[in-house]
């Protein structure tokens, strides 16, 4: 499988030099912990373009209204090996997700619990829970069709569609990622 990762030029060079990716963690990650990639799908016109737009837009810090980096890189990768993919866009994958999500809700909203949620579990936390806490659930990649704000207008005007516009992977085992090359570079100011 060919997958593209967009990042700053500096990070791109570091990834290439060290031949490894760092995980994105935290509860904001849509597909849970992992290194994130865009892949070809019916929802995406071009995964390279998706990765490029992502990298360009991530450079801009809304709070400081400035760019945290000026140049981006898109890295081409092959995802190879024993791929155990949790495909959330498939019927079965969605069913597993729903069962975990609803079972979590049943447990934490029960009458006997003396704690209440300040912030609900995100999709990423549900996925991490399933993979890290449930015995015999052994996925090393999570895949889904998602909507991501990939244009300046969408971000600035907070436009958000329901229909997915790309397909993303979170690869939890980075030994599956074979870095091919930096396939595109440029500035973030287009």
């Amino acid at each position: 499988m060919i997958a593209y990762h967009g990042t700053s030029k500096e990070s791109g060079e570091k990834i290439k030099r060290e031949n490894s990716y760092k995980f994105s963690c935290g509860d904001n990650q849509w597909l849970g912990t992992g290194a994130y990639f865009f892949i070809d799908s019916i929802y995406s016109e071009s995964p390279i373009e998706d990765a490029k737009c992502w990298a360009q837009l991530e450079a801009y810090d809304k709070d400081t209204k400035s760019y945290t980096y000026n140049e981006y890189s898109v890295i081409k990768n092959f995802i190879e090996g024993q791929l155990d993919i949790w495909d959330l866009s498939s019927e079965d994958g969605a069913e597993f997700f729903l069962l975990v999500k609803n079972s979590l809700a049943e447990k934490i909203y029960t009458n006997s619990v003396q704690k209440k949620l300040k912030k609900g579990p995100s999709d990423g936390i549900v996925i991490n829970y399933a993979i890290e806490k449930i015995k015999n659930i052994c996925y090393n990649i999570v895949k889904n069709n998602v909507y991501i704000q990939l244009t300046k207008v969408e971000r600035l005007k907070r436009v958000r569609y329901c229909q997915p516009n790309c397909t993303a992977l979170a690869v939890r085992d980075t030994s599956l990622v074979k870095i091919k090359d930096i396939c595109e570079e440029g500035t973030c100011y287009e």
């Binding site: 447990k107 006997s112 209440k116 912030k119 015995k135």
Partner: peptide, 23 residues
């Protein structure tokens, strides 16, 4: 899994994963 864990265990796990709870 969910038949074998208590709500408290689930909450502890979710807290480990970044969920925030309050008393």
């Amino acid at each position: 899994h969910f038949n074998s864990v208590t709500p408290e265990e689930v909450i502890n796990s979710l807290e480990e994963l970044g969920c925030e709870f309050e008393d």
